[in-house]
């Protein structure tokens, strides 16, 4: 279990929600539910965060903001969609301005149903997200491990060798005509 899963930092964004789920997310930090005893801190900076808690059925204007926050977070990262609106659009799924759930904008790892979502369910979701975080971290480490790098280097060398062994394409006979530009010529391009 790596250090990140022992103390995941969360970033929270309200993606066009009614605020009900947002105040329950903030209530998780207060003394009654207190996720800070698990090392969780609510940060405002996407580059410091591991878990993205998003609420609300996203509207057209908010898609860009949600995608930007998601792209600014560093790998490995986990997205938790909190509340009925974030999972599927909820009661607003047929509104004209709503795209119908967060998974239509960014990939989601854990869905938490409820209206408004319960703080206990949020704690369950963060714990489940930590499992996904560990798997992603293991996959990243494998991708960046020494063996993987060696394999990638060997594959690249093979590709270069294959490209070098093929006969060169005949270069078009351009040098003679191109270098002999007659600066004294009266011809103009238009004529």
């Amino acid at each position: 279990m790596s250090g990140t899963s022992k103390s995941p930092w969360i970033i929270h964004y309200d993606g066009s929600s009614c605020n009900g789920c947002d105040i329950e997310v903030l209530a998780c930090l207060t003394p009654m539910y207190d996720v800070e005893r698990f090392g969780v801190i609510n940060t405002g900076n996407p580059k410091h965060a591991d878990v993205f808690l998003i609420t609300g059925a996203v509207n057209e204007r908010n898609i860009g903001v949600v995608k930007q926050i998601y792209s600014q977070m560093l790998e490995p990262k986990v997205v938790v969609a909190c509340g009925a609106c974030a999972c599927s659009g909820g009661i607003f799924h047929d509104c004209y301005n709503v795209i119908g759930g967060v998974d239509k904008a960014i990939p989601v790892d854990v869905y938490v149903p409820g209206c408004a979502v319960r703080p206990e369910a949020l704690i369950d979701a963060v714990v489940a997200g930590l499992g996904a975080l560990e798997e992603k971290r293991a996959a990243l480490e494998l991708a960046s491990s020494y063996e993987a790098k060696e394999l990638a280097k060997a594959a690249e060398q093979e590709r270069l060798a294959e490209a070098a062994s093929q006969p060169l394409l005949e270069e078009p006979a351009k040098t003679e005509e191109q270098t002999d530009i007659d600066i004294n010529a009266d011809e103009e391009p238009g004529e």
Binding site: Y111, P113, D124
Partner: peptide, 29 residues
């Protein structure tokens, strides 16, 4: 993932076969 626990179906059922339980809905992948 869509249910908003408004209790409307429970109060309308003519044979009272629906109940609202206290355990919250589990998380889903």
């Amino acid at each position: 993932l869509r249910c908003i626990t408004c209790n409307d179906c429970v109060s309308r059922c003519p044979v009272s076969c629906l109940t609202m339980e206290v355990q919250y809905m589990p998380i889903a992948i």
